[in-house]
């Protein structure tokens, strides 16, 4: 039984990977199998979402029961979760389709997300100032480079001269470095994927 538990997932992973590779490199043999398998993954992930919901509910119910100092946030999370799920289900049943969920998304979630994202500008300045205070050569070059590129984009006459320097930065050193990083990253991604497909990285089922 223990062997089945170890080898069955390995065989499934290997056969699935083989089918996707054959689909990629041939025509007429197993056409579109990759697409079908990706749909299956989405379907399985949909069911697994229930496990995720169970985990969130358990963690936050526990916090409320144990009188955690931030239990009100947990309560808000659980209430929001139930409201959004009910809005989706009732909206469908009542014939509004996704109108109610979309309203929640557009008028509640979206402004919150945008507000959170806009904080990045202030945090970035804070991080840049701290980096300058540390004063290592690399960090100072990073901030100076960022400033030149940033000011080069500004449509303000005194900074016009920086535009060509900024463009040169982006076209040559930055592009070259990004391509180098991308090649290394792609090789890393290939290595990691193949290790999993060959069953070498099987730490998820020991």
């Amino acid at each position: 039984m223990q062997r089945v538990k170890i080898y069955l997932p390995l065989i499934v992973v290997f056969v699935t990977a083989l089918l996707v590779l054959v689909d990629f490199f041939t025509t007429g043999l197993v056409d579109n199998i990759g697409h079908v398998l990706a749909l299956w993954v989405s379907l399985i992930a949909g069911f697994l979402l229930l496990l995720g919901l169970a985990n969130i509910s358990t963690v936050h119910f526990q916090r409320i029961r144990q009188g955690h100092p931030k239990r009100l946030y947990s309560l808000a999370l659980l209430v929001s979760m139930v409201v959004v799920i009910l809005a989706g289900v009732i909206g469908r049943v009542a014939g509004y389709q996704d109108g109610v969920s979309n309203w929640i998304f557009q008028y509640i979630y979206q402004p919150l997300a945008t507000t959170l994202f806009s904080l990045l500008a202030f945090l970035l300045i804070n991080a840049a100032l701290r980096t300058l205070r540390i004063g290592t050569i690399e960090s100072t070059l990073l901030v100076i480079g960022a400033l030149i590129v940033l000011l080069g984009q500004v449509a303000f006459a005194p900074f016009n001269g920086l535009h060509s320097i900024s463009q040169w930065f982006q076209d040559y050193p930055v592009l070259g470095i990004i391509r180098g990083i991308l090649i290394g990253t792609a090789l890393g991604a290939i290595a990691t994927s193949l290790r999993y497909l060959l069953g070498v990285d099987n730490n998820y089922m020991r």
């Binding site: 840049a128 701290r130 690399e138 960090s139 960022a146």
Partner: peptide, 11 residues
Amino acid sequence: AMPLMLASAGP
């Protein structure tokens, strides 16, 4: 993310 990590977490 990389430049932000360098600035925030440090090299």
